[in-house]
Amino acid sequence: MKTLATLAATALLAAAMTTSADARCRGCAVGAGVIGGLAAGAIIGSAIANSGPTYYEPAPPPPPYYRGPAYVVEEPVCRIERHRYWDGYGYRTRRVEVCD
Rank of each mutant, 00 (worst) to 15 (best):
T6W: 07
E57T: 15
P69M: 10
G68F: 05
P62R: 00
Y71M: 05
E97F: 00
A14S: 06
V98N: 06
C78D: 01
T6G: 03
L7K: 11
A9E: 09
E57S: 13
L4Q: 06
I80S: 14
A23M: 01
L7T: 13
P76R: 14
V77P: 00
R82I: 05
A39E: 01
C78G: 03
C28V: 02
R79A: 15
H83D: 11
V73R: 10
A16S: 15
P64K: 02
E75N: 10
A47D: 08
P63M: 04
A32G: 10
E81W: 10
T19Y: 00
S20A: 10
Y65H: 15
S46G: 05
R24N: 11
T93Q: 15
Y71S: 01
R79E: 14
G27H: 09
L4C: 09
V30T: 13
L13I: 02
P62L: 09
P63N: 09
P69D: 14
R67Q: 13
Y89W: 03
A70E: 10
R84C: 01
D22S: 11
R84I: 01
A9K: 07
G68H: 13
P76K: 13
P53R: 08
N50Y: 04
C78R: 08
M17G: 06
Y91I: 03
P76Y: 04
Y56M: 06
P63S: 13
G90W: 05
D100C: 03
R26L: 14
R67Y: 01
G88A: 01
I80K: 12
V34R: 15
S46R: 09
R24E: 12
P58G: 14
L13V: 11
N50R: 12
P60Y: 01
T18M: 00
R95Y: 12
S51N: 08
V34K: 11
I48C: 04
A23I: 08
C78H: 04
K2I: 09
A59M: 10
G41Y: 06
H83V: 15
I44T: 12
R26A: 13
A42S: 11
L4R: 07
R92V: 05
R67T: 09
P76A: 15
S51Y: 07
C99S: 04
G90Y: 08
A14N: 07
Y56E: 14
P64V: 04
T18Y: 00
L12W: 02
E97C: 06
R82Q: 12
C25Y: 00
T18R: 01
Y56R: 13
W86F: 13
E74R: 13
L38V: 14
L7M: 08
A9Q: 10
R79V: 10
L12E: 07
A39R: 10
P63W: 01
C25W: 01
R24Y: 02
R26N: 07
P63C: 00
T18K: 00
Y71V: 14
A40I: 04
A47W: 03
G45W: 05
D22C: 09
